[in-house]
Simulated scan of single mutants.
Amino acid sequence: MRIVRQVLLAAIGVLGLHAVHAADSVPTCPSAPQPVAQAEATAGMRTARDRGFLWRLEKDGRTSWLYGTIHVAKRNWMYPGPATRRALHDADSVALELDVLDPAIAAELSTAITARADAPPLPAGLARRVQAQAAAACLGEGLGRMRPEMQVMTLAVLSGRARGLDPAYGIDVFLAGYARGLKKAVVSLETPAQQMSLLLSDDPAEVAQTVEDVLQSLESKNAGPQLDRLAGAWDEGRLADLENYADWCECLDTPERRKSYDALVIGRNPSLARHVADIHQSGHSVFAAVGALHMVGPQGLPMLLAALGFNVERVFFASPRMGGQSASDARP
């Protein structure tokens, strides 16, 4: 469950990244993400290749699209490749889990992740361990303004910075801005309240358990490699690697963790699928971009949308290793 929670909250955490990054004057500290200049963006779009997972959805004579994203990415991964751009241009609207560029949603998320004044403090031992991890990650005082579970999840997500992975370059955030540039309607498939009810708790025991879980991953140095593998599977379109996520993530090894994963990922899929279907059936084609872990298995979004009457066909991208289609992911 650790990596799932970390990735789900990455797009939310990006709202506070500039507040928590320490000054860049310490040589060993990773630099804060820098704004993308126009020349860099133009070059990035010109040379971008397709990444991630794309499906074509056909129903009632219209075509919509389903795209599996990742919320923590490398800087040059932000730019959609040719096939993804064509789908974006062809769709009437873009649907995201949450449109974090919507000021109302951003404000609601910011309030939700801010530490409650009346919340009991973490046990002293846990608080010291969080502070030690924050110092090692070169994060500033802004981290302490977040709820405790948000603090450790932000630390876990930022553990990918050494590998160039940063939520500031999250695919969903870029798509939200790109859609606005195309004058497309941007739709949120969920509400902040829906997501926060699954991700955060007011029960001190549950908060402490989440903090302990993520700290163990950070202290064992597992968080970075696991995030790296998840990102690599997205980069190279290895859907089979995500289908086997439970075998390597070291996060679904207890009934409690499996239950949390089912709620955080599988349990949200029916509502997400219905919302995508409703937009399409209203007469508007949609490019729906949702985290890639929602795409796998019999309860993944492609299968659920097929059950709702869509003809679902995966669009295969050229493999960066093979120079052609991915041979390992032959199923739609």
Results as ranks from 00 to 15, higher is better:
127 A>N: 10
3 I>L: 12
154 T>R: 08
243 E>V: 05
310 F>A: 05
23 A>H: 13
247 D>S: 15
304 L>Q: 11
253 D>Q: 08
22 A>I: 09
56 R>E: 13
175 L>A: 10
86 R>D: 11
162 A>D: 05
26 V>S: 12
299 Q>L: 09
110 S>E: 15
276 V>S: 00
289 A>P: 08
73 A>S: 15
274 R>D: 07
206 E>K: 15
255 P>A: 01
12 I>M: 11
93 S>V: 01
112 A>G: 13
61 G>E: 06
281 Q>E: 15
28 T>Y: 13
89 H>K: 14
260 S>W: 12
174 F>C: 02
272 L>Q: 02
304 L>H: 07
90 D>C: 02
206 E>Q: 15
295 M>F: 06
180 R>M: 02
313 E>K: 13
235 D>C: 14
195 Q>E: 06
23 A>C: 13
182 L>E: 02
104 A>T: 03
173 V>T: 11
100 V>C: 04
289 A>G: 01
322 M>W: 14
69 T>Q: 05
55 W>I: 07
80 P>H: 08
285 S>I: 01
190 E>A: 01
286 V>I: 05
301 L>M: 06
110 S>Y: 04
297 G>C: 09
269 N>Y: 03
58 E>H: 15
331 R>Q: 15
244 N>A: 14
45 M>V: 05
121 P>V: 06
192 P>R: 04
289 A>C: 02
144 G>K: 10
44 G>C: 02
312 V>P: 01
136 A>E: 14
207 V>I: 02
256 E>H: 09
93 S>Y: 00
291 G>W: 04
136 A>Q: 13
138 C>Y: 10
233 A>G: 11
217 S>N: 09
297 G>F: 01
158 L>W: 06
50 D>G: 10
28 T>W: 15
293 L>F: 00
208 A>F: 00
94 V>G: 06
224 G>Q: 10
258 R>K: 13
98 L>V: 07
208 A>P: 00
263 A>D: 10
232 G>T: 12
286 V>L: 04
